[in-house]
C-alpha cells in the first residue's frame, strides 16, 4: 500500500509517522498517535465530533487527510488541558454545568466553544448556538453546553477586569 512519511505537530509535539496518504487526520490522531479524545461520528463532515484546531481554527478532522496537516499546528482536546494537566476553565465549566451526558460529542464541543471565546469574549446566546451548530449532541438538548460557555465567558471577563 502507498505510504508516505509525514511529520505532524500535535499539541506542541512533533511526531514523524509513515502512513498511507488516504488516512484521515482523525484516524491518524486516534490510531497512530493514540490521542483517542477526538471522536468519529459520521466521517462525512456533519456531526462535528472530530473537531480539532488546525493552527487556530476549528476544522473537521474527518474531512482532512493527515498528510495535509504537515506544517500546521494541530490541537486536540488533550491539548486544551492546562500545562500542569489540570482542566482548563472551559473544561471545568463543562463539568460544573454538566454540559454533557455520554461525553461523546464533548471534545468537539470544547473545540468549537474555545474557538468562539477566543474570537468573542462576550458572546450572546445566539452567538454560542451558532458556534456550536456544526456539532451535534444527542443527549443534552444543548442548553447546559450553552450555559457552560456563558459561564466561562463571564469568568474570563471578570478575570480580565480584575487584572
Amino acid at each position: 500500500m502507498k505510504q508516505v512519511e509525514v511529520t505532524l505537530n500535535v499539541n506542541g509535539k512533533d511526531t514523524t509517522l509513515t502512513i498511507p496518504p488516504r488516512m484521515t487526520l482523525v484516524d491518524c490522531l486516534r490510531d497512530e498517535l493514540r490521542l483517542t479524545g477526538t471522536h468519529v461520528g459520521c466521517e462525512h463532515g456533519i456531526c462535528g465530533a472530530c473537531s480539532v484546531f488546525l493552527d487556530d481554527e476549528p476544522i473537521r478532522s474527518c474531512l482532512m487527510f493527515a498528510v495535509q496537516a504537515a506544517g500546521h499546528r494541530i490541537t486536540t482536546v488533550e491539548g486544551l488541558l492546562n500545562e500542569d494537566g489540570s482542566l482548563s476553565d472551559l473544561q471545568d465549566s463543562f463539568w460544573e454545568c454538566h454540559a454533557m451526558q455520554c461525553g461523546y460529542c464533548t471534545p468537539g464541543m470544547l473545540v468549537a466553544s474555545e474557538s468562539l471565546l477566543a474570537e468573542n469574549p462576550d458572546p450572546s446566546e445566539d452567538d454560542i448556538r451558532e458556534a456550536i451548530s456544526g456539532n451535534l449532541c444527542r443527549c443534552t438538548g444543548y442548553q447546559q453546553i450553552v450555559e457552560a460557555v456563558q459561564m466561562t465567558a463571564k469568568r474570563r471577563r471578570e478575570g480580565a477586569a480584575n487584572g
Binding site: 490521542l35 471522536h39 463543562f94 463539568w95 454533557m100 455520554c102 464533548t106
Partner: peptide
C-alpha cells in the same frame, strides 16, 4: 463521570 469526558479520557469502544 464528566471529568474524564472533558479531559478526552473517556473509554469508548473505539478506544
Amino acid at each position: 463521570e464528566d471529568r474524564r469526558f472533558v479531559s478526552g479520557r473517556g473509554k469508548f469502544v473505539a478506544d
